[in-house]
Each structure stands twice: as C-alpha cells, then as structure tokens.
Design a binder for these strands. Sequence first.
DNA 1: TTGTACGCGTTATCAC
DNA 2: GTGATAACGCGTACAA
Lengths: 335, 335
Amino acid sequence: MITIKDIAEAANVSPATVSRVINNGPKVGPKTREHVKAVMDKMGYRPNINARALVTQKSTSLGLVLAELMDPFFATYANAIENVARKANTQLLMSSGSVQADTELKAIETLLNHRVKAMVVHAKFLDDDTLIQLARQAPGFVLINRYIDAIKHRCVWLDNVAGGRMMAEHVLKLGHRKIAVISSDFAIEDRVQREQGIRESLAEWGVDLSDSQIVHAAPNQEGGEIAMRQLLASGARFTAILAYNDAMAAGAINTLYDHNLEVPRNVSVMGFDDVLQAQFCRPKLTTMNYPIELMASQAASLALDYAQGKQPDTDVTYKYLPTIVARNSVARCIG
Amino acid sequence: MITIKDIAEAANVSPATVSRVINNGPKVGPKTREHVKAVMDKMGYRPNINARALVTQKSTSLGLVLAELMDPFFATYANAIENVARKANTQLLMSSGSVQADTELKAIETLLNHRVKAMVVHAKFLDDDTLIQLARQAPGFVLINRYIDAIKHRCVWLDNVAGGRMMAEHVLKLGHRKIAVISSDFAIEDRVQREQGIRESLAEWGVDLSDSQIVHAAPNQEGGEIAMRQLLASGARFTAILAYNDAMAAGAINTLYDHNLEVPRNVSVMGFDDVLQAQFCRPKLTTMNYPIELMASQAASLALDYAQGKQPDTDVTYKYLPTIVARNSVARCIG
DNA sequence: TTGTACGCGTTATCAC
DNA sequence: GTGATAACGCGTACAA
C-alpha cells in the first residue's frame, strides 16, 4: 500500500504538505496543491483510516449488534441504521448472531476494541448490570428494544405490555371471548410482557385465559404451525388467536387451513411486528405495527449525538408504542 | 481510553511486557503475567485494534458490499458471509445501498481505506475495467453474482442463462406452449441473461415468444402485480408465467386471484431465487433455487484465502447453477 | 525473563 | 506557504 510518504517523495514535498492537500488544509499553494493531487491520483493513494483514527482519536464507524440478519425484523432494523450511518459518513461495523449472553458480550467488546464512535445494541440476554457498565465505557452506547432504568436516556424501546393490551382489546371489541395465545418459547422479556398485557386486558373484560389456551413454540413459521396443531389437539376452544409475531401467525393460519378452518371466517388470527410477511400472507395479516425503522433511526441518531458529546435530554424518553394494522385475518366474532 | 502504557505503569513493568501478556507471548514469567493480567482486568483495558492493525499490517475485518439489506436475498447473502467471518474471528464492515455506479465505487473505496483484509463485493453497475483495477489493488477482493473474464478466479457467479433455460424447459415439459414472461426493469445483466435463456429454450421447442408476451416492471411484489395487470389488459394468452423473481411471482399471483384466475389451475406461475417468501405464498411457489448461501460462503472463504496469500486454482471456476424447486404454483397444462 | 527503541501512517504543533 | 518533529497505541527486534 502506498503511503503519504511515498507521495511526498514523488512530489518533492514534505508529508505535512501532502496531508494538508488531503484534508483541504488552508495553507498550501495552489500549484503545489494541484501537483500533489496529480501525483496522488497517478499513484493511486488511499488514506489509511486506521492511522488517521489513531492520531485524531476519532472513529468513522458505527457499531451494530443484532441477533439474526435473516429475520426480516432485524433486516429492517439494520437497514434503518445503515441509512443514518451513510448520511453521517459513517461505516457500519456489524456483529450479528448474538443469541446468548456470551455472544452478545463478545460482540459488544469487539466493537469497543474497534473504537467505534457509537454503537446501537440489541441485547436480550445480557444482564442489566453488565450492560450498564458497558454503557458507561462508551459515550455513544445506545440500547434498542430494551429498557434499563439506570441508563434510560440510552434506551429506545417498545412498550410490549401496552402492545399486548392493544391486541387483546382489538379482538375483544370485535366480540371475541374465546381467545387463545400462541407465544414464543424464547426466554426474553418481550414475550412475558406481551402476555402480561394480554392477561391484564382480558381480566378487565372478565374473560378467562386458562393455561390450556396458551402454548409456546419457536418464534417462527414452523413454530406457529406446531403451536397451532398442539392447540387444536388439546381440544381448546377459541374464535381468535393472538400470535407472538407475524411468522407464527402465518404458521398458525397454514395449520388452520390444513384442518379446514378458514381465516377469518372460522377463526381470527392476529400477528405482531408487521413485517413484510404480514402482507404476503393470505389473508393479509391483521397485526401490530412495530415501528422498528423509526426506532432504529432514532437510536442511531441518538448514539451519534451522544458520541459527539451531546448531553441527554433529561425529560425526554424513547418509549414507542405499536399500532394496530387492521387487514384481513381478524373479523367480528359471529360465534 | 486506557492504554498499554497505563497498564505498564500501574503494574511496574514495561509496555513490552504488557504486550507479551496480551498476545500470550512466550517469554514472560508466570507471576508477572498474572500480575499484569490482574491490573488489566481491574483497569478495564481494551486493546486498540486499529493501532494493532497499523503495526502488524493486518486487519481483522472483512468488507461487504451489497445493494439492499431489506431484500431477503441480500439478507441471506449477508448472513452467510457473517457466519464465515465469525468463524475466522473477523468483523464485518458493511456497506449497503449500492444501487448505482458511483455509490458502488464509493462503498468499495471506503472499505479499501479501512484496509479490510478481504472483501466480498456485489456490484452490478460499475464497469468491468474499474472492477478489474480495484481487484488488483486488493488481494482479497472477490466479486459475487458477476463474471468478469479477466479476474475469473475472483468471481462467484450464477449461470443465469442456464437458469432461464431450466425455467422454460420445466413448463414446456409440462405441456405449456403459451408462455408469458414477467421480468425486471432494472438495467442489470441478470434479467437479460435469464430472458436469453428462456428465449433459447423456447426457440428450440419451436415455441414463439412475441414481444407482447413479455413485460417489465420493478422487481418486487408490486411490480409483479403491475406487470400482471398489464399482461391481462393486453389480451395476451398464456397458461404459464415465468417471473424474474419470487416477489414478482407472488405479485402476479395476487393479481390473478383478483381476476378470478386460480394458480395453478388456470395459470401456472414460476418464480426465481427461492427466498423464504416462496414458502409463505399460497400456493407455495415453484421456483428456481438460487444457492446464494452456498455462493456467499464460498466467496467469503475465497476472499479470506486470497488475503492470506493463497494462489488461485487455475482450473477451478466458481460458476453455480440454480435448481428447480417444484412446489405448487406450476401444474401440467390441461389447456 | 525483562526493558529499550523503533516504526506502522497519519495529523498537528511548531518553527522557518 | 512549507518542512521538521512529535505524538497516537501497539508489536517486536534487539539489547541487557
């Protein structure tokens, strides 16, 4: 690789002058500037960003931690962050595959070692204390999809309890009283919170949710199919299904069709997340829109701001609410 | 940020000794080693990877250029690369959003400036010469989904012409003779090549493909819907549709249903890529499997190998072929 | 076994 | 306007 020194030598100037040319420095003669530029062009010079970062003590990359790139939810998230990064002339340093506490920790540490200027972290398994400590080490550290009170101005999160309530209320208002839940078997708080919201809402309406009405499986389409089969086999009665996410809802619908149950004529099914799949489904899914794109953009901007020394707005909080998207998989109960 | 010098000072040793401890250097006493480790732990030392890269002249990051993270095709691609990277203890430096020649160029140059050890590049708009020149600057430069003869051992690509032929033959063998094509309006070679393959195959079977039987639109679901409406409005006659990708196929199916045409009873529809959507569709799509995961892994390994100085196998080429996945959207022609 | 000194590529602070 | 020179954080040859 050709360096600033090589250019200096070939152009008969000092490295300092070359550096000035590169950075559009103020004090350099017009003809030397042109000359140096020409030499750089001819020799194919490329600035070494790492060396630059070393001396300037500032990085030009933004760290990103996520669980699973192939999940459309995370793809949307990553894409939104990338857009913010690009506008800030920042490169994305990504670490996917964080599905356990130790991989999450390793991902964050690696990013820290790379001296990223800021980072947006999706971490569901690491404990609060570790996260708090990590956050203190990096000014531009922002958590997404998680709330920790001690670092609340670094958290961009969704109110899952409210989301669960909204789901339940939606079908309750449409007359459904026999409701079943297909939830995730992943040990993360989201599912617990959504279930809690559902339970709260049902309780308020005086509707019972027995343990047999709620089944857990992997949070993907196959899991949805399995859960639905389990529900049908158990003899549970229901006119509406609340699913943990759109993939599970789609799986549930598949299984219902296989059992000659039509959606929404015989059974209503509601999803969560509103990923693209919700629109591909037949029928198109009624679901909760998770404003992940908005949240991710917010998180990235926030991280970049903090990295630049901006102080947190004490009275601002970054809690988001999902919204109901009424499509065709939920109908009024005619039982 | 706390440095190696701080540790040295606090531990009463020289920076060199600390460095040895960090890198598990051979010549350092057991008790000093423990002592230094303890100090590092207490002070929360983090190696500066950039500084390390500067002196060792080797990077620990792998560059990745792609067009659109939210496209499931690219998500699969990125995910496969990430898996290879992780196994090689390598961080992913990603640049998405390359949808024009200049953004592609900028993405590659940025990665080069970061001195990534290797890079896998998806570039559809840059001209061959630029790519060849870029490739010569970086030993670990590998192109995916594109073939350039001058750097053929750096190309991992799909034979799109063969893919087009396979599609056409599949429906021809099922008796279809009235065939329409829904293609992309993106100015990239893939579509031209697939259309060429289709034409070749049809010609061999003596089947005509008039210009009115082929329409172009955006390569997504909406484009598929639009193209299908156009086809129906034009009065074209067909019993089988060959779509540019699964999204367009899904869109086409939607429109057909809206016109009370059942798939595959009235019309057969075939997709391309075999992304997840192909399985979510109703009916599940018959499509061409694009082994993008395999290809991406191959490309990443290759890039890493070349970066380590491995010489290209002269007699090996990285051409891949798609395979037919027969699901439920194509049936024997009963016209 | 440990320490000293140098260099990686770059920017910044001085002089001139 | 331009050029030495020192630093950034680290690894390593060499000396001790």
